[in-house]
Simulated assay, not measured.
Amino acid sequence: MKKHNFSAGPCILPQEVFEKASQAVLDFNDSGLSILEISHRSDAFVSVIEEARSLVLELLGLQNKGYQALFLHGGASMQFLMVAYNLLQKKAAYTNTGTWSSKAIKEAKMFGEVAEVASSKDKNFNYIPKDYQIPEGIDYFHCTSNNTIYGTQMKSFPKTTAPLVCDMSSDILSRTLDFSQFDLIYAGAQKNMGPAGVTVAIVKEDILGKVERQIPSMMDYKVHIDKDSMFNTPSVFAIYTSLLNLRWLKNKGGISGIEAQNDAKAKLLYTEIDRNPLFKGFAEKEDRSTMNPTFNLTEGTDKASFDKLWKEANINGINGHRSVGGYRASMYNALPLESVQTLVDVMQHFEKIS
């Protein structure tokens, strides 16, 4: 029986994507070859990566606006380094809203001065800082849109004359935004877009070429743009599966279509968290993530009994990160509302028997 998968990543994908990807492993497009063995230089795969890159821009509304979509290696963790390599000449500004932004700051400090303009570390990252000042004369401003571990999400983004860089690993393609306000967006695919093994970077070309240092070829966005994401052998299967997921999302009405479903899921779960006396939300209400609700049991509540109930209900992946404890129910695009209802039913049953 298929489980209700609330895993934070690698995440749930649509059933039709699993089915089409598995068929391609056996026989890709009736070619007599598996997707795992076709040449990345073949016309068949070139058409896959070209469509995937084009669909990313189409779904974000960034076609013909000077952006390039790249499929790269190394996850968002490599992007922490790559962003600074390409953009940081003297000074950059960062907000620190959790584990991943802390790691991004650490990498950037290797290349220049980093101003940490705001942090929510004082309350274990359970809120998004606001009303901070972004200094003038910086090379770029970096933020993290959604914090998977702590369950917080930026609802708006600051105005800045510097290039705006955003790590959207855990909420990309999940909500409507004016994506043209960003100059560089990056995301590991495994949170909401595809399988582990590939990273997407959406880069506005005119922000590149400003640093004086030599950039190694594998770290240089311009090299990857010039080579159409084919500078080295790409992650063929991961990109193909991401393409299937992008097609699925387009057929669902694009980002605006899936956003309505994501909002409904979040409302259902957060309403129960706030109503049920046995649970308490971790993140500040105004900063709650649509993708990664985090919550704890109230003091004195029997954790073992609750854990037994949700496991018996075929629920997977809701244990909280060790930094927060409690529970985390990641509700990415492909998670059906029925799975959230199952979790809510368990929470309500737990209340009745406690």
Rank of each mutant, 00 (worst) to 15 (best):
K2A: 08
N5K: 13
G9Q: 03
P10H: 09
I12M: 15
F18P: 04
A21M: 11
A21K: 10
Q23C: 06
V25Y: 15
L26C: 08
L26S: 12
L33S: 11
I35A: 10
L36M: 13
E37F: 06
I38Y: 06
D43R: 08
S47Y: 06
V48G: 02
V48W: 11
S54N: 15
L60S: 02
G61W: 02
L62W: 09
N64G: 09
L70N: 09
F71Y: 13
F71A: 12
H73E: 15
A76C: 08
A76G: 11
S77P: 02
Q79R: 09
K90V: 13
G98W: 00
G98I: 11
T99L: 13
W100H: 15
S101I: 00
S101Y: 01
S102H: 03
K103L: 13
K106N: 11
E107N: 11
E113H: 11
V117A: 02
S119L: 03
S120D: 02
K121H: 07
N126L: 05
N126D: 09
Y127H: 10
I128C: 01
I128Q: 03
D131T: 01
Y132H: 04
E136S: 14
G137H: 03
D139L: 01
C143Y: 12
T148R: 10
Y150R: 04
G151R: 01
T152S: 02
Q153F: 02
S156E: 13
K159T: 14
T160D: 00
T160W: 05
P163T: 08
P163A: 07
D167E: 07
M168K: 01
S169N: 02
S169E: 06
I172W: 11
R175W: 02
T176F: 07
L177H: 15
D178H: 06
F179S: 01
F179N: 14
D183W: 01
A187N: 05
A189V: 13
G194F: 04
P195K: 05
P195G: 08
P195N: 11
P195I: 04
G197H: 03
G197Y: 00
V198M: 10
V198S: 13
V198E: 07
V198A: 15
V203R: 07
R213D: 10
M218I: 12
D220S: 12
V223L: 10
D226A: 08
K227M: 12
F231E: 10
V236D: 01
F237P: 12
F237D: 14
I239Q: 07
I239P: 08
K250S: 08
N251C: 07
N251T: 07
G254F: 02
K265T: 04
A266C: 12
L268R: 12
L269Q: 05
Y270C: 08
E272M: 02
I273E: 01
D274P: 06
R275P: 00
P277A: 06
G281F: 00
G281Q: 05
A283S: 13
E286R: 12
D287R: 03
N296K: 09
G300W: 00
T301N: 05
K303V: 09
A304F: 03
K308G: 04
K311D: 13
K311E: 15
N316V: 05
S323C: 10
V324S: 03
Y332V: 14
N333S: 11
S339A: 13
V340F: 04
V344A: 12
D345S: 14
D345W: 05
D345Q: 12
V346F: 07
Q348I: 02
H349V: 00
F350C: 02
F350K: 03
K352P: 00
K352A: 09
I353T: 12
S354V: 14
